[in-house]
Design a protein around this nucleic acid. Structure first.
Lengths: 227, 227
DNA sequence: CCAATAAATGAATGCCATTCATTTATATCC
DNA sequence: GGATATAAATGAATGGCATTCATTTATTGG
């Protein structure tokens, strides 16, 4: 990619009142749209990600976006594929299987916990539409195979790990008092006791404790399948 | 043939042109709204669940709904709490811990796989706002405690299991060809080989294989924690 | 040089959730 | 038993949103 993408700078890009017609160089492309969307999400959150706001941040009319993406869902697909490339798969091939899976899963969860609105999309999107996501799967699959994982179970294991990762990504965004039963506490004594007991442990991130617990169970359970 | 009784019946409930003013008996309540929404979702899916369509199915003006719910999100919360009550927790207390967890998790996944749009809501909603969900947690917690599970880890284990269940619920709705790399297949040989290898197994539900694999790993990993 | 094309504009369009003033039967209070 | 407050409905806005379309025009390829 020789041409550096324009219009992705931090400048708000006020309505530039560009004339219509084919410009000297294209103002927009999918890469620029993706990074602008990412920046917008960073400042305004997913509620602030509207086609109008996205266009404004690029100094362009909303309808102009549709020359490069077919819908807002298309923007979300670009985003999620971009994020997939940020997931750390580097440990596969350089570290033992257990720690490689561990690094991958933690990284995967951390990346998507900031982008939970994309989870419903990535969870059901055919991989053919997401090349970087596909590349991630390739690295992970190769790592499983090299570690002696039975080939007919590799995909199932990855799918299971991914399911756990996506669900855990939501947990990260949950409010701290999510398990506070409030006025109903007396009606659910076992639950309340268990919640209180966990609180006594004084973990800085209860969410991380649950993630670690589940992940280690999956790793040791799956690890037993290896040759 | 206009049915005289509106609300929650199977009839489409045409605009009944009711007069304004306080009626003899309330036409609407949260229970009726919930079951009407459920029926609407069953026929038109979640895209068909609009406040206007919901009101029409109840034979009422859209604005009338706001006397009983504060927003559409409120409707979704009612729905998900209703669904939580359909999850099978009956095995806790009557069966060994392993099979009780198994029954609960499969049931939980099956219920929410038909209602994935509710997952982002239930995953982060404080339990105080969802009494039936809370009741489910109480049953599960009691089951863990009676099985000798260390009390300070009960909540973490449930959270981890739930995360897995939610992620797996999405998988159920994914298209069958989700792992078909298409024209990119040659660039991801390990992945493609693993996918083909799984396909050879001829499972009727590949999704169920992955769910079972992950669930059994979690059950045996967590089971080891018991006294 | 001319025709086709790519990439922009801005003005609709239609859907959707939500709000508000208004109406009126019923319930409550004196 | 009459006045009054209240609950629950109506229908007409309102504003936000994604998306479409006719139009414009600089560039590119034959």
């Amino acid at each position: 990619m020789p041409a550096p993408t324009p219009a992705t700078s931090a400048t708000p890009a006020r309505p530039v009142r560009r004339r219509a017609g084919r410009p000297t160089a294209a103002v927009l492309d999918q890469g620029g749209i993706t990074t602008a969307a990412l920046e917008l999400i960073g400042t305004k959150g997913y509620n602030g990600l509207t086609m109008a706001a996205l266009a404004r941040s690029l100094g362009v009319a909303p309808s102009a976006l549709y020359n490069h993406v077919s819908s807002k869902d298309d923007v979300l697909i670009l985003l999620m594929d971009h994020l997939a490339a940020m997931v750390d798969v580097s440990a596969f091939g350089s570290e033992p299987w257990e720690s490689a899976v561990r690094r991958w899963a933690w990284s995967y969860r951390d990346v998507f916990s900031e982008h939970t609105p994309l989870i419903p999309i990535i969870a059901v999107l055919p991989v053919a539409n997401a090349p970087k996501t596909l590349a991630m799967y390739e690295s992970v699959t190769a790592g499983f195979r090299e570690a002696g994982f039975p080939e007919d179970r590799i995909i199932s294991a990855i799918v299971a790990l991914e399911a756990f990762v996506f669900g855990a990504a939501y947990d990260v965004t949950a409010p701290d008092d999510i398990f506070d039963a409030g006025s109903l506490a007396s009606q659910v004594p076992n639950f309340t006791a268990a919640v209180d007991r966990l609180a006594l442990e004084q973990h800085d991130r209860p969410t991380d404790v649950a993630f670690s617990l589940g992940l280690e169970a999956l790793i040791s359970g799956f690890g037993a399948l290896r040759a």
